[in-house]
């Protein structure tokens, strides 16, 4: 199923309006075969809506979506045959066994046999429970079965909305490795969505940040992988706070400096912090403590998605 050159998925100025509310606003994006792309954004950002449009469940109001150059709107059958997907929760038929569920979806495409169904259930680690009714499955098992129905026909574009939802840590890791392997070995374009930053950083080659229906940023792997070695906030506890702060501002005009909560906050790299300390001491200030404000993942998520401001 390896695809010729070119883009796996192209979103061209995609806009979705419901009533007069714009839910997705002029979103353009190209995704390559063999890459793992992540949509990151807070609740209600428009991740699921974008995915629904990519798989043709919702019509675009303006713009176009191409899967291997085939429009999902105008050429649905051809375009969708390259796609496997989970949209929101993997809801399957609870009253049937996992196997029957897979058989059901296999019946809807050409050429998927029994052995293929069994192999897929092995791949997702469900072979022991595949003949049990789905209503007896745990959330994580349903997620696995959801993945199984998505990869059953070996699609070249795999779209998963919050795939780690409900999986245990080992399961998340397994899923991550499986998806990375798929991208690497089968040249599959894997598109995931999540609001878990750490998860996305470990899994994705690129992350598109969505907020209020707009794609506000696309981060390359190099931009997020070494984040922790960059600048961060340091808090200096000194005497004569106001005076110290004013003088620091003059001396270091390029740094972000502020006074808050009885400390001077400076955004800098570690070397600069040592320099500031030396300067303060040299100018007769007493430096009691210097603490680095370790950013929590939550802070970074809010920072990346522009949630705090």
């Amino acid at each position: 199923m390896n695809m010729k050159d070119g883009y796996a998925v192209r979103l061209q100025n995609v806009t979705k309006k419901i009533g007069n509310k714009t839910i997705i606003d002029n979103l353009s994006l190209d995704i390559l075969p063999g890459e793992v792309f992540g949509f990151l954004g807070p609740n209600g950002a428009g991740k699921t809506t974008t995915i629904r449009m990519m798989v043709g469940l919702m019509a675009v109001t303006q713009g176009d979506i191409l899967i291997h150059n085939k429009s999902i709107a105008r050429n649905f059958k051809e375009a969708i045959s390259d796609v496997g997907a989970i949209v929101e929760n993997p809801e399957l038929y609870g009253f049937m066994s996992g196997y029957r569920n897979l058989e059901h979806f296999a019946n809807m495409v050409k050429g998927i046999g029994k052995d293929c169904i069994m192999e897929t259930s092995r791949q997702v680690g469900l072979e022991n429970r595949i003949h049990d009714k789905v209503k007896t499955y745990s959330l994580g098992m349903r997620q696995r079965l959801g993945l199984a129905q998505a990869i059953l026909h070996k699609p070249s574009v795999l779209i998963l909305d919050e795939p780690s939802n409900g999986l245990d840590p080992a399961g998340i890791r397994e899923m991550r490795e499986y998806l990375r392997g798929l991208a690497k070995n089968e040249n599959t374009a894997v598109i995931v969505s999540s609001h878990l930053l750490a998860e996305m950083e470990m899994m994705c080659d690129r992350i598109g940040v969505i907020k209020d229906g707009k794609l506000i940023d696309v981060k390359e792997k190099s931009e997020f992988i070494h984040q922790d070695e960059g600048e961060s906030w340091y808090a200096f506890k000194t005497d004569k706070l106001e005076k110290a702060e004013a003088q620091l501002r003059e001396t270091f005009p390029n740094l972000e400096i502020s006074l808050a909560g009885g400390v001077i906050k400076v955004k800098a790299v570690a070397d600069t912090v040592a320099g500031i300390n030396a300067w303060l001491v040299k100018n007769g200030y007493l430096v009691y403590t210097i603490t680095q404000e370790v950013k929590t993942l939550e802070d970074r998520f809010l920072e990346v998605t522009g949630g705090r401001k």
Binding site: G56, L57, I80, E88, L92, Y93, G94, F105, M108, V109
Partner: peptide, 14 residues
Amino acid sequence: SQGTIKLLLIRPLS
């Protein structure tokens, strides 16, 4: 109501 409509309509069938 089961939500299975989503999986049903993303197959290569009209």
